[in-house]
Write a protein that binds this DNA or RNA. Sequence first.
DNA 1: CTGTTAGCGCGTTCAC
DNA 2: GTGAACGCGCTAACAG
Lengths: 341, 341
Amino acid sequence: MKPTVHDIASEAGVSLATVDRVLNGRPGVRAPTRERVLAAIQKLGFVRDVAAANLAKGRVYPLVFIVPANDNSFMAALRGEIAAAGMRGAQERTAISILTVPAFDIPALVRALDAARAEKPAGVAVVAIDAEPVREAVARLAADGIPVVTLVSDLPDSARSHFAGIDNEAAGRTAGSLMGRFLDGRRGAIGIIVGSLDVRDHRERLDGFRAAISAPYPDLSLLSPLEGRDEPERVHQMVSRLLAEEPELLGLYSLGAGNRGLIRALEERRPARPIRVIAHELTPHTRGALETGLIDTVLNQDAGHEVRSAIRVLKARADGQPVIAAQERIRIDIFLKDNLP
Amino acid sequence: MKPTVHDIASEAGVSLATVDRVLNGRPGVRAPTRERVLAAIQKLGFVRDVAAANLAKGRVYPLVFIVPANDNSFMAALRGEIAAAGMRGAQERTAISILTVPAFDIPALVRALDAARAEKPAGVAVVAIDAEPVREAVARLAADGIPVVTLVSDLPDSARSHFAGIDNEAAGRTAGSLMGRFLDGRRGAIGIIVGSLDVRDHRERLDGFRAAISAPYPDLSLLSPLEGRDEPERVHQMVSRLLAEEPELLGLYSLGAGNRGLIRALEERRPARPIRVIAHELTPHTRGALETGLIDTVLNQDAGHEVRSAIRVLKARADGQPVIAAQERIRIDIFLKDNLP
DNA sequence: CTGTTAGCGCGTTCAC
DNA sequence: GTGAACGCGCTAACAG
């Protein structure tokens, strides 16, 4: 039979309360007593039953998620996943609230962070914008002892305690590596559509893509990136013009959102000369385009995984427990029309 | 506050025990009483706390895993994942035992299934061989009320209640789809290495690959598959000869195991004309080959996911609870050197 | 500093 | 048929 706290207590000759204090690293135990308990734990190979602990604790973790009110499918999916996590809140002892802020709006984001801080939650998850005022707002939360994790887009050199998202530089390299293989041996140009170079994930993807193409494939030239602001309408206009004006175009890399516009532009002028297209985020739109062959490959970050990871990390940090980084790595998924989930 | 059995009891005007009987579908409750309880559950939106239930039950699930004693990295990893799940057994209330059987040995597999049956476990997971005697042994387990899930390799038209593995036909199509894009516009031959055409997953992968190449890429011809028996030595010989004798070779698809041999052959005669190589299963060997550029792409099934999924399904079936199929889908991972985990 | 005690939400004997 | 009471493994007051 699996040992319990009772076994530890009698083995160490102390009471349950003392065992509990040692287990949870709380004060009020003399060093020698603690040693005895630790020895008993070692000897009996005790592993605490987390479910029972949670049951007894009955603690709830108020968590605030701050996400942009963006009109693209990925952000909608992200908000959906957060809402879904909220529904499960009862079972996971979390109380999740969502704050939506205008996209790419630094002052609004700062206000939201300060508003979250006023509620004194157990933790905050935020889709960050890479700017100094945001860094300062995060520092204020950290100063209050409220852990912050960045979601999807990171904020390096800040007080955030974790980033729940993919390695965007690697994602860009992956896209470049694939595009290079697709176009190997050909000579021509590749168009790039970004959302905004103010957000860190887009900048990093661009860097990675460039690195993977420039050196190994000198015959492929990269056009300067078009900023679509993640807005379908704007992306549509830019891509339409690009398709019309650039006859040498061999490939297209869309590293932001708003792919609805990209797909419409491709549909409207399906060029005689086929174009290889790589985009990000598996949404109903990109999935459809994969199936019809308009898009070749979609790189994806699983919004559900990111949200659940953020919650796990926040709860762990709120309890002062360590996080196994490797276990919280978000992978870069690659989808063709053939391996769609 | 989340409703508990107490709330249900008082709402329905009955005792805790009665609520419990209704919840677990046990006899000893008159129909009208049951209705009242059900109504209360509906009204309050009660969801039972599974953790607390397990705590009270103290039930453990004895599970038997039957896997081939194969010498390749994938099977080794699979066995490792099962062992790891066994370590977590205490926390997850499972008691996992592993039975290893000689590879491709039908009578031995049947004996193992019957041995498992004698232990009366809560469930059995098995890497199946597609043969009639195996089907019969599975039927015997099912007749005893012991749920069986197939792992990695399926056994269709049998009494197995679930398959924890990837869609191998889709995996083959994915490989073909990638290979086609890599070699688009070129004219030449593609070599195929299989383990054995007697095993179901390999046959399905081959079919998928052929379907994805033949029609869309008429300029690419497929050589007849070489049977490497998943043995590195044999694969090495076959690939070496192929590389020497087939000057037109543009690509190589290795859909079985024994990739150690493939990689050695490629290393020994790195051809001036580059060859596109796609293989299955991310192992230390294929990972290394991805990093050095010897292999372009690896398709992977996550052994850890498969094992954990099998356990979840087995526990659910043992409790007579339904399984959300979509949630247990094992995805086909695609790895380039750039998105390695 | 340490021990006692009363639950957390649920399952399960036993009586009634 | 139905209900009261105890316990699963752990935490958290409250005493001492």
